[in-house]
């Protein structure tokens, strides 16, 4: 496999609400990475045994740069959010499967989940398409990088639980009539609601997340319960992170 272990320089660290849009100079990974793939980023400062898996949100092969959208949810992500231009951070990638989204797929993002679909939306726009994106969050402050998403030229609908921006409600209540397919990245309750609303008629693909260690399928840490194989699991880093929702045994995901 073509993986690269690069020491990346932070080119820019821009605020997106309380998240950060980090642009890193990592020429080999930037040239190779495709939508839905991720990198394992080593948290600087010591005290962290595990690297953090992060979706590559944008990549510019010509500039040798890639971008990550990081929300501080724990000590590791907070340390990454504190990176300033000029700092260096180690990363390995591109990891996970590069998958082409189904034609005319509707993209659905929940909160920081926009990080997982942004690259695919950007690529579709670059091809001259105008992909539909349904982007929801609890409130306006959690609609991370919404302006960047709109600037891509996609057909973006913003939705907030509290109506502080865009339409009020949940993304699952705003689904258009019979989309050909849905590609979603967000919290598990959002996936549950999408599964319920879409039923079996519409193919649903979701980005999976789990504690991860190696990123290459060796250690079997990032397990997700496999549908049709009672008791067994698949490795998210290897089969995903974008997987057909029908491949996941949602009962064993605790019903969500």
């Amino acid at each position: 496999m073509d993986y690269y272990n690069e020491l990346a320089a932070v080119v820019a660290a821009e605020a997106e609400g309380d998240a950060r849009w980090l642009t890193l100079r990592a020429p080999r990974v930037a040239a190779a990475v495709r939508p839905f793939q991720f990198v394992l980023v080593r948290v600087p400062g010591g005290g962290f045994t595990l690297p953090r898996p992060l979706s590559v949100t944008a990549a510019d092969a010509a500039a040798g740069e890639l971008s990550l959208l990081v929300k501080p949810v724990g000590k590791g992500s907070a340390a990454l959010c504190a990176l300033a231009p000029g700092a260096e951070v180690g990363l390995v990638g591109p990891l996970g499967r590069a998958v082409a989204p189904p034609p005319d797929a509707l993209f659905v993002a929940g909160g920081i989940g926009v990080a997982g679909v942004f690259f695919a939306v950007a690529e579709a726009c670059r091809r001259g398409e105008r992909p539909r994106v349904l982007f929801g969050a609890r409130s306006a402050s959690q609609l991370f990088a919404a302006a960047r998403l709109e600037a891509l030229g996609a057909d973006v609908t913003l939705v907030t639980d509290d109506g502080s921006r865009g339409e009020a409600g949940l993304v699952s209540d705003r689904l258009p009539e019979a989309p050909p397919a849905v590609v979603a990245c967000g919290p598990r309750p959002m996936y549950r609601a999408l599964r319920e609303r879409l039923g079996d008629a519409v193919p649903l693909f979701v980005l999976m997340e789990e504690h991860m260690a190696c990123g290459v399928g060796a250690c079997r840490s990032c397990a997700a319960p496999a549908a049709g194989r009672p008791g067994f699991y698949f490795a998210i880093c290897q089969e995903g992170p974008l997987v057909d929702a029908a491949a996941v045994d949602w009962q064993r995901m605790g019903g969500i």
Binding site: T49, G76, E210, C219, R220, S221, C222, A223, F232
Partner: peptide, 18 residues
Amino acid sequence: WPGNEPHRVAEAPAGLIN
């Protein structure tokens, strides 16, 4: 063998619990 239910790893001080 199918392995255990997730989470399967947890970060620990200067270590990893799997």
